[in-house]
Amino acid sequence: MTSTVNPERVLRELAGLWASAGQPGGAEDGAEAGVLRACTMTLVVAAEDGHDWQGLGETIAALMPEHPARAILIRLTGAGDRALSGLVSAQCWLPSGQRRHICCEQVEIAASDAALADLPSVVRPLAVPDLPVVLWCRSARLAGMPEFDALAARAGKVIVDSQELPLGAVARLAARGTLVGDLAWTRITRWRETLSLVFENRHNLARLGSLTNLSVAHSAPMANTAAYMAAWISNALPNLEISIAPDPQCDSLRVTLAGGGFRVELERHQDRLAVTVDGLSRCANLPLLNDYSLMREELGIVRRDPVFDAALARALQLAYPSG
């Protein structure tokens, strides 16, 4: 049996959705009649049917106030007939202290593997004109399939997570000229920022040249994140002796820079990031990052990120030293 999605019908349903939301009574009690429609991009999210779709829906809903988007959710249903089906809905919220609902559109498309080749022709007309298209791929399986390339080719930015993919796959995407975001890299932004802050101090900056050793210990799932961290630091300090090793005691990363009697350590304990410089410790708030906080940062950057590009290239050398 074959089923399909007609983009024009989906667009008509979206228009109908706005018309009904704009009617008196379309908004809930206490709110003004009518809604404010907000959109800054088209966000295409692909995930397996077995994924936590409720959690994914909550992540998308949380992102909408900061990155209002037409969300196109692609549910990958796996083997079976060549089948595509669609469902249209709206995500609305009433900002605190305000009188009018803000709404964003959501289109959910279920696609079997056999229908993946048809997806670009459905997604293309559904993308909001003149605004960026961002593809967030939550499926390592899809990222390895040839159909993924056609979907990624439409996107201004592709976001993946090399915690679930080999770094090589990220590099291949980047090599095709696609703007890539890797959540494994995003996870260390606050770590990097904290380390950078240490060297905003002129006294510490003057001792930078004395550092000779870098050690990055990591929990099992954080191997690529550790490689990124080591890569980023070694891009700034090219002559360091580098050690990257898993450590079962470590809940995420532990970064140690040492040499010439100078020592800088970063380690996360519960929801705090502790930075210790020559024994003087200071801690800052660093809750465990979830998909929402990672995507919130990545969606804010829809242009080339030269620091990431350089870190990715160096991380590949560190992860695959034999080339």
Binding site: T189, R192, S196, A206, A236, I301, V307
Partner: peptide, 17 residues
């Protein structure tokens, strides 16, 4: 002696004091 912090990333980091 370096005069600029080589770890800066203005695209992602907040302005620091």
């Amino acid at each position: 002696m370096p005069t600029d912090n080589p770890f800066q990333d203005p695209l992602r980091f907040e302005r620091h004091v």
